[in-house]
């Protein structure tokens, strides 16, 4: 069989693959984050250290991919009318990775004291946040592959973000109603806020992606 390689097609395929891997990494970061809180609460320090290392690797690789994608888009002049939108989206998604890395690192360094009564709610919050990020990654992948489903996944992101907000408020109230030291209360509140912020960033990405999808329509 005759195989003819068109440089434009192979370049486009290479960029598509990079964008795909970037989304894979975001999903991997979300799954890792979901596991991380359970490991932390189990006081499995050596395993948590590995998680911290793993998320750093994911974050570094995602950063490199983001730069490659940006470089390919500009140097090959692909999608010229959507370049700015795509760059904004990729950078916003990368902020999710950065925030996940930040939160996991803070738990690793600060080793906050978390009473057992907060464990269930904290796991629930992390679960909602991870789901939110996963759905955002799927929505973004759909934007590149099949934009008909972008709205469905974005809507899921909104719902999960609202749920995570509710859980965050419950935790916040419980923290300040507890008999912990004020310093502990403030530390835990700050860390919980940073966890909830991950879903907020995902929500901002969903807002952006819905506008970009409208712009994609002819």
């Amino acid at each position: 069989m005759l195989h003819i390689k068109f440089p434009v097609i192979s370049r486009t395929k290479a960029l598509e693959d990079k964008i795909d891997i970037f989304h894979d990494m975001l999903i991997e970061a979300a799954i890792t984050f979901r596991h991380s809180i359970k490991i932390f609460l189990n006081n499995d320090h050596s395993e948590y250290k590995k998680i911290n290392k793993k998320i750093k690797n994911i974050e570094n690789q995602a950063d490199q991919l983001r730069r490659d994608i940006e470089n390919d888009l500009y140097s090959q002049n692909l999608l010229p009318n959507l370049q700015a939108d795509i760059l904004q989206l990729i950078e916003s998604l990368d902020k999710i990775n950065n925030q996940i890395d930040d939160v996991i690192y803070k738990f690793y360094i600060e080793q906050p004291y978390i009473p057992t009564k907060f464990h269930f709610k904290l796991i629930e919050l992390c679960d909602q946040v991870a789901n939110c990020v996963e759905n955002m990654a799927i929505a973004s992948r759909a934007f590149f592959k099949n934009h008909n489903t972008v709205r469905d996944y974005s809507y899921k992101v909104y719902i999960l973000e609202q749920e995570s907000d509710q859980t965050y408020n419950d935790i916040k109230k419980a923290i300040f109603n507890s008999d912990m030291e004020l310093a502990n209360k403030l530390q835990l509140d700050l860390l919980t806020t940073e966890v909830a912020d991950i879903a907020d960033i995902a929500e901002d990405c969903a807002d952006e992606i819905l506008i970009f999808t409208l712009k994609r329509d002819i």
Binding site: I9, T12, L15, F144, K145, N146
Partner: peptide, 10 residues
Amino acid sequence: GHFSLLQQDF
């Protein structure tokens, strides 16, 4: 047609 964004661009 389920074209990806980059296919559509091409």
